[in-house]
Amino acid sequence: MSALRRSTPLAVTGKYLALAFYVGFALFPLYWLAKIAITPDKLIYTEGTALFPSKVTFENFETVLVATDFLAYFKNSLIVSLGTAAITTCFAAAAGYAFSRFDFRGKRLVIALMLITQMFPLLMIIAPIYKIVAAIGLLNSLTSLIIVYTAFNIPFATFLMQSFFDGIPKDLEEAGMIDGCTRFEALRKIIMPLTLPGLGATLGFVFTAAWSELLFALMLINSNDTMTFPVGLLTFVSKFSVDWGQMMAAGVLALVPSCLFFIFIQRYLVQGLTSGAVKG
């Protein structure tokens, strides 16, 4: 392909300029977050929109880590996000495999129902969800968040996993079954290793969604012990002022697990693992 496409220096420069512009545009808010986090409180308003503060401080980080409940929020968020990601991915992988490989009565109906759940705003069902969670006595618990997030993420995650399974030729597990595997063994030894990128993507997607969810966390949690990180961020907003520096420092810290998570699963996200399975 690349040999066919003649690229002039001008086109290359243009391409990289466009990419640079896009990356700059996308990353600027993150830069601003980090910038304010290291700006001393008294300079935040005086220096306004300067691209870099005249004085750098890590005091905000220190305050956040030592003087606030940030670490507790962080731990809660980690439990909720990891729990949600793990449970959702398990369900989604099983359901996605079934949708991809089997024909069964009601399949289209189930798919349609799952799609419908994605079509209306969550705001509509906040009240009923609250009532249900209150009725089973799970208010102010991390379990309630895990259950609710799992329920909301399963449809999309299932479709995501289904498309990954669809991309793996059926011949592979049939060859496995002829070679002596049960269907489950074929799934475990042949299909699973090839689905790792899909599992990684799904885990990452669900983790991020759960990590940044605010609405339900705000509704279902109001004790300080079980607050997740996005709710905790709001504690930096008091009646008369906003602790911008600390808030941003907390925000920067909150990015860490997401980044680590994606660094960890990145190698599974590399496509092309199935190439060479069938004719090419």
Binding site: L172, G180, L194, T274, K279
Partner: peptide, 20 residues
């Protein structure tokens, strides 16, 4: 009888080699 117990080997049109 399931395929694994039929003692038959099959060569697929797509080869179906295990990529990993």
């Amino acid at each position: 009888v399931p395929p694994r117990d039929r003692d038959m080997a099959m060569v697929f049109q797509s080869y179906a080699l295990y990529p990993h």
